[in-house]
């Protein structure tokens, strides 16, 4: 090997390695910095209320009493509603786009789905206020109330604003994410596996049910977790439709509040240190929830994805 080019290669290599090393390190730095701020700025709240802050059910800035449970409840329930609506819808989209749609249609529709993910959150919020909320008030809630009113979930006056509207708007927002990832997952199912099933005399649906979906199950699970993660942290659109009242009610028709939404709402108006630190503490809890979710997701995906040894992927 020529000496000069070897040296140049070596120097470039060291510089490049140093750069990527720093880039990777900066990521760890950012996470630690965020965590430090969350812990530091929430000190006041946690010393005053202790870990009971997470379980307190009253959030009352006027009297200086802060409990995060209604926010945690609102965050988790609105996200679960979103997932319950978005997951079947997204799977339907992904299956249609990879298995059933005519080939010329697949590209444009996939593009449209991905475009939906690029619409800013506040625009979804506006649409929610002007279209979704009136529709929920005039159609969805009355129908659910009369059909399933025997369940506490669907009792109460139809406001339009509230937990249900937040869940629906979140569902619309995470559908592009879940369906785009699921689509990639289903595209990766080897043709040979599907052909084998079809060649046995299976219909399209049987092939999807018995081969395609089982093959993609860990990826679909990953897609769902990704969507759930996005729903948990979504702020703007939720704030605009959820009603912003920190309370725990069994009815999905009631107003509610999420962690992300209350921070956005009250941060600029927090008039004392305790209120401010309570908001940061709520943020800390959100951080922990998403962290736990991702750890759980890792474990689940790892369990489900234990692909048999020697599987050849094509």
């Amino acid at each position: 090997m020529r000496k000069k080019s070897y040296k140049a290669w070596l120097e470039g290599d060291i510089a490049f390695r140093g750069f990527t090393y720093l880039a990777a390190l900066s990521l760890v730095g950012v996470v630690l910095a965020i965590l430090w701020v969350l812990v530091e700025k929430s000190q006041l709240t946690f010393t005053k209320f202790g870990p009971g802050f997470a379980l307190g059910s009253r959030w009352d800035p006027v009297h200086g009493v802060f409990g995060a449970l209604p926010l945690v409840y609102g965050t988790v329930v609105s996200s679960l509603i979103a997932l319950a609506i978005a997951l079947p819808l997204s799977l339907g989209i992904a299956i249609y786009l990879t298995q059933l749609a005519p080939h010329w249609l697949r590209g444009p529709v996939s593009f449209l789905v991905e475009l939906l993910a690029a619409i800013p959150s506040v625009v979804y919020g506006l649409w929610g206020v002007f279209v979704l909320v009136p529709w929920v008030r005039s159609s969805v809630e009355p129908v659910l109330g009369s059909a399933l009113g025997f369940l506490p979930l669907f009792r109460g006056a139809p406001y339009g604003f509230g937990m249900l509207a937040a869940g629906i708007i979140l569902a619309i927002m995470i559908t592009p994410t879940i369906s785009a990832v699921s689509r990639e997952v289903l595209l990766a199912v080897p043709r040979s596996q599907q052909e084998a099933m079809l060649a046995l005399g299976a219909t399209r649906w049987e092939t999807i049910r018995m081969v395609v979906l089982p093959y993609g199950r860990s990826g679909i699970l990953g897609a769902a977790i990704l969507g759930l993660g996005r729903a948990l942290g979504e702020t703007m659109a939720v704030t605009m439709v959820i009603g912003n009242r920190p309370q725990i009610s069994p009815s999905l028709f009631e107003l509610a509040q999420t962690i992300a939404s209350i921070i956005a709402n009250e941060f600029s108006e927090a008039f004392n240190d305790l209120h401010l630190s309570a908001l940061v503490a709520a943020g800390f809890i959100l951080f922990v929830i998403t962290l736990l979710l991702h750890v759980m997701a890792r474990l689940l995906v790892w369990r489900v994805a234990r692909v048999p040894q020697g599987v050849t992927r094509e």
Partner: peptide, 10 residues
């Protein structure tokens, strides 16, 4: 088929 393709999830 040409290459053995048992169902990997079964």
């Amino acid at each position: 088929f040409q290459k053995p393709n048992p169902f990997s999830t079964m």
